[in-house]
Structure formats: structure tokens, C-alpha cells
Write a protein that binds this DNA or RNA. Sequence first.
RNA 1: GCCGAAGUGGCGGAAUGGCAGACGCGUUGGACUCAAAAUCCAGUGAGGUCACACUCGUGAGGGUUCGAGUCCCUCCUUCGGUACCA
Length: 803
Amino acid sequence: MKEYNAKIIEKKWQEKWDALKTFKVKDNHDKPKYYALIEFPYPSGTGLHVGHPRPYTALDIVARKRRLDGYNVLFPMGWDAFGLPTENYAILNKVHPAEVTKKNIARFKEQLKSIGYSFDWDREINTTDPKYYKWTQWIFLKLFENGLAYKKEMNINFCTSCKVGLANEEVVNGKCERCSSDVVRKLKSQWMLKITDYADKLIEGLDDVDYLENIKTQQKNWIGRSYGAEVDFAITGTDDSLRVYTTRPDTLYGATYMVISPEHPLIEKYRNKISNYDQIMAYEAEAAGKSDLERTELNKDKTGVEIIGLTAVNPVNEKEIPIWVSDYVLMTYGTGAIMAVPGHDTRDYEFARKFDLPIIEVVKGGNIEEEAFTDIETGILVNSGIINGLNVAEAKEKIIAYLEEKGIGTSKVNYKLRDWVFSRQRYWGEPIPLVYCEDCGWVPLDESELPLTLPEIDNYEPTENGESPLLKITDWVNTTCPKCHKPAKRETDTMPQWAGSSWYYLRYIDPDNDNELADKEKLTYWTPVDWYNGGMEHVTLHLLYSRFWHRFLYDIGVVPTKEPYLKRTAHGMILGENNEKMSKSRGNVVNPDDVIDEYGADTLRMYEMFIGDFEKSVPWSMNGVKGCRRFLDRVFKLSDMLVDGEGYTKELESSFHKAIKKVTNDFETLKFNTAIATLMALTNDIYHKGSLTRDEFATFLILLNPVSPHVTEELWEMNGFDSMISDQQWPKYDEEKTIDSQVEIVIQLNGKVKHKMMISSDLSSKEMIGLVKSDKDIIELVKDSTVIKVIAVPKKLINIVVK
RNA sequence: GCCGAAGUGGCGGAAUGGCAGACGCGUUGGACUCAAAAUCCAGUGAGGUCACACUCGUGAGGGUUCGAGUCCCUCCUUCGGUACCA
């Protein structure tokens, strides 16, 4: 009997797969293709932790199984390597971020290799490689050419002490995470991408894809399409009017005051009419220090200032109403102004209560003494002139028609989705390939100039006023205008990390192509991605951005499909043993290297899958790891139970057919934990029997191979089976042989189990009832009561309802 | 706050509206051993009983149903996202 030595076995097979190029993808377009994709990692300095292998192993299983099913499988890996942590590390340690990145990648790659994934490493990509970001820049130029990139003044978080623009994450309670100084919001002219132009396409595209339903909902809610109206309220004593957006034009008669955002231009425009201008300015300054999240939080105390000197007129009843300024109204959504209907909007209600403003009921059905009535299904309009007596939907339609006829309003579709802020005042990102010329304005570089590479630089610190560190590299910044050849300056902002990850799946298809983003024919064969799995934390932003770019590339004829990903699933996080998120600071990080060292990669892979429901987060447990290793030891010892004989033995036949069916389905539906449980149970059956045939063992090894590929290949070879498992076919099952001829059913009395019996599994409900009626145990059971009803469910149970 | 999820033994979890707790961990007992580890076999939701019987039990409270972990309503707690973290 041989020893199961994971270290030797795993090294042997990893070398063999490398040498034989077992998982090299051929562009053999005769076979059906299957493109399995996992989110490429950010190569951090801390290396892999046990959370990383969870999704990788899952889709490695799918990829390996699909190969045995006869598919040409693309399962690639790469690096999303631009980003803040690397840059911050580089600043702190005075090393080039490229060097840090290189080191981190080498470490990550070594770790991934030791887990035995079937990636085609010849297609490895890296977003920081100029050969890669050439095409990220190319896509940006196309967006620019098509009018989808524009400049706009937007706020950034700015640390007054570090003089750096900060990510939201780096702002803790309004203070800088590093130095605890005040963070202010500073206006900067930034590049924006017009994703809002694609809002409808991004909603409609969801009809054609197979995403988990909650993911689709998240996407739709993020885009937040709403149908409402814009209405003009005249401003007393001027020719001007104040335009608001509302999703509830039906409540127009209930508008008792208006609220505008502190940044609203109206304030500046009528500065001289406003008697408390200073007070309003002070309020605006205060609001500027808050994030949108802080401003709109519902449970916080509402704040605001009435504008003294300006009032508006409700266009449907000519009532004069006050105008307030409050930070819960955002300049970035709608028109930056609202009509407040405190009777029927929770935020307005709270505001009105706090500042003692009138509340009028215009939709009947609730109790506005207590709270705002926001139900739109049951309410009936009251106190509302021409729309009295209608329900909400009818009232909306009628009032919009009225407003349009009078020229004071119009129906309007609005989106919560905002345009994408695409500028970062940082070094470690793709340079934006544009030049500013005094005469020609913003001019794109010629495609032949790409990639525009990052200049070598000694100091990665941003400048005093929050500009990108690139600004200081005058050699690089000063250039000539591509159009008129006069002196001009380069854009110094770089792209956000989202850029490189928005299209990486396309580059795997043709990673070395210098002439185009990817070959057209290859794109046609390989797109769309058949299955994309990643973290739940990426299903709004990354997924949306990436769908946006893909759809844009489709619209300009670069890619052949509207949607990038046919199917999207999400995995749960792996937590530390203490049930907290794994992090260095919490000291609960588990390194996969240690697990591999003690138990082997096959055990690691299996535990990653067996640990629990794939879609839920779950704490790591070293004891659980041990259990998986114990199972592999038991599998190893099956070699000693091999006996002569072909096919499946009578005793195990049904177990095997059931196991094939279950494992096959479970691998395709993210239920790896129950697939492994099935194989464990099958092993228990074999142990009880004490022997198995070579055919049985072969089937077993193929079923287990995607989870634990090294040890199964070793056992395959050790026991003299032909070739390698990676050359075999996935086993088939016979549906008939998964059905038991006899089943145990339960007899319930009023839903409580009282008795059990074995019956033939093909009996109908009627036959079952007949059988039970004549059974003397059952007669005994019901003899003291009156039978009202008998319910029989074939193969399951009989429930006798008695009095 | 808003949007999306999730709450089941000591722990991870399983269960097309049909015997709650598969499988694994832990634990208890036994076998093997001088002994221990490893391994193998058996038990293991709680209460209750010598043993049965029986009672309770899927975050809380209601409801629908012959039957609810599963469907509906209200609530509580935890997690993810919240637009410059990745």
C-alpha cells in the first residue's frame, strides 16, 4: 500500500500539466466553446488569502468538467494591478509602483500555481502593461470621439493637511484616514463618461442575460429609472421660474413649500434679493463638508434655512409658498430642486414637522396626523381640483397632460444613475490620452501615438493643490497639439481602476494582438463570456461599467454581442475563524500556503468548496480542513479495495447512477458542497461493501477530479488506467437506475408521523389509499376517530385528517 | 437612510409545500495499542423515560394550508453595495 503524499503528487502533476500544456487553449473553432471567467485579482502586497481560491476553484471545477464534456474551454487569469494601495506603498517606501506590482504579481502567480488551476497561463494579462493599457486608452479615445467623454466641475475629497485627493474610503467621519485632519470637498474639473446615455440600453440588456435575479434587481435599482414630470414654479417678483422634478406630479396640490439644494444657482442669481444670504452661505459651507450619504440619511435630523426674499407660486392653485435650502436635496439628481409635499413624502414630512410648515392631505387613505401617506396603490386624490377622485396612476396622467397643455411642465424620465467620474489625481493609473491646446481645446492623441506611457518619476505625491503628480513632470506635460502643432499640455489626471477591468475579458481572447483590441473572428467565436463569477460586492458598479463599455463597443462595431456576460453569479466571502472579515489588522488572515503545506492543494480546494453554501459568507475552520483531508485519505485507500469484475455491481449500481446525476447537476448550479457530500456518502457505501470494481473506481475518480485533480490523476495512473483523466469523458447516468423500486412512506395523522411502511414506488395516490385502508395497523390507528379526508402523495406520504 | 441578501443542533451546513438536521467538524462509547496518535465501528437537536411513549424545536409575532424552514404580512439582528477601496 502506497502512502498519500500530497506534496510529491501535486508537484508531479503540476509539472506534467505545464510540460504537456494540458490546459493550453487552442483556437480550434470546430469544437463548441465555453468561456468561464472569474474576476481577476488586485495583486496586493499581502499575497493570497483563503478567500481568493473560493471562486477560482468553483469555476476551475466547471472548466475541468466542461472539458470532459467535450468543450473547447477558455479559462484565463490576469491582474488588475493599477490602484491606490500600491501607489501608497510606493510613496511610503520610495519604490516605483511598477516594481511593487511586479513583485506582488510574481507572488500571487506562484501561489495560484501551487493550487493547481487549469488556467491557460499563456494568456495572462496585466492592466498596467502598456501593451494592455494601449487598448484601454484606445477605448477612451473612441468614447471621446463619440461624445461620451466630457469635462465637468465635480467635488473631490481633499485632505487639508496631506493636500491629497482622497477616496471615499480614506475619509473616516469627515477626517483623513491617515492624519485625521479635516477633509473638505473641493471642486475640480474632471473627465466624465456619459453612462446615463446608456441607461435604457443597460436596463433592456438585462432581459437577454442569465444573472441571478437579485443581481438584475441591483442593476435596475442602481440605474433607478423613474417616470415623473418636471414642473415650473414661478418665482414671485421675477420673470424666472424654478423647475423641479417629481415622481409624484399627482400630489402637486399638496406642495406647500419648495426646497433647493445649497449649491443651486438660483441663490447666486438672486443674491441681492435674499436678505439672509450670509446665513445661507454658512449653511452651504457646512453642507459641503458632508457626503451625499450623510446628507440624505433619513434618520438624521433635518436641517435647512428658509430663503428670505424669494417665494414661489404653486402653478395649479396660485398659492404663494416659501423656498427653503436643505442639504437633503442634491444638485446631482433631478433639477436640484423639489416641490415639497409633506403629506405624501417621508422626508418632506419630517422637514415640515421640524420647521412647522403646513401639511395638506391630497391623497386619501392614510393618517397624515401621524406620518406621510406614500401608498400609490390604494390612495384616492382629494383637495386637488381637476384630479379629485382619481387614483394615483390616473391622476398622474391627467395632471401631466394639463401641465403640458399650459406649458408649465412636461413628463420626464429620470435616472438615479449619474455620469461616471473618470478622473483621478493620481500617478498609478492609465494616462488619459488627451492634450489641451489653447486654440483647439481638448484634442485626442492619434491612435498611432498609443500607448501613452506613464513617465518615470521620483515622487508620487500629488501636488499642493490636489493635482496629479504628473503635473510636475514638465517634460511629459509639455507637448505639441496633434492638430495645430503649437505648444500644448497633456491631461495629467489618470483613469480610475474601473477602466482596465471594464474590458479585460476581451483581451484574454487575443492577448498579444498589437493591431487591434482583439481579432474579430476570435471575438465572434469566444464572446460572450458563458459564465462570469465574482464577488457580490462587484455586482453594481464593476458589472455596470463593464456592460456599458461593452455595449458601446458593440454600437461602434468592435464586438459582436450586445452583452458581455451570458451568466453572472456571485460567491460569498470567507471570514476569519472569529467570524470577522479577514484582514491584516484583525490578525485573522489564513494563508493558503500554510494549508497546502500541511494538507495539500487538493484538500484546500475541496474544503474551499465544502465549507458551505457558495453564495453565503462563512467563517474558515481548520477542523473542517482536516475532515476533507481525512476524506481524501479514505479515497486513496479505495485502491486497496479493488476487485475483479466489470461495470457497476448490483449493490452499488443505484448509488453510482444517483451520484453521477447529483454531482453533474450540482457542479453546474454552484452546489459544490452537496456534490462533495454525495461523493463522501458514496465512499461510505463502498466502505460498507468493502470492495469496488475498476469501472466503479474510474467513475468515482472522474467525478472527483474537478475538485481534487492531483490526487485523482495519481490514483488513475497508479492503478493502471489508460492515459490521463484529463483525456477522459464525463460519466453518464441512466435515469431509470436512479429510481428505487421500493420507497418508505410515512403515515401521518393530522400531519404528525405515526407510522412508516415500504411500498412500491410506482403506486398512484388512489392505490396508496387503497393499500392503507386495508392495513391493520392503520385501522387500529384511526379506530377511535372519524376520518374526514385522506391525502396521499406518491412516494412520500399519506396524511389522514381525523376528528 | 436607500438598494440587495441572510438568520436552521455545540459549529459549517442539507432539505421540488410533504419524516427538519444529509454530509462534515466537534463530542461520547467501543475495537486496535504497553500507551498515545492515527484508523475502524457505533451513538449524538432539546426535554423526558430503565427503555419506549410523549412534548418542544428552523431569529420574533401573526396568517394561508390537510401539512410551512420553505408561501404571505409585520418586526428584530447580521452582512454586501451606496458612485475616488478593490
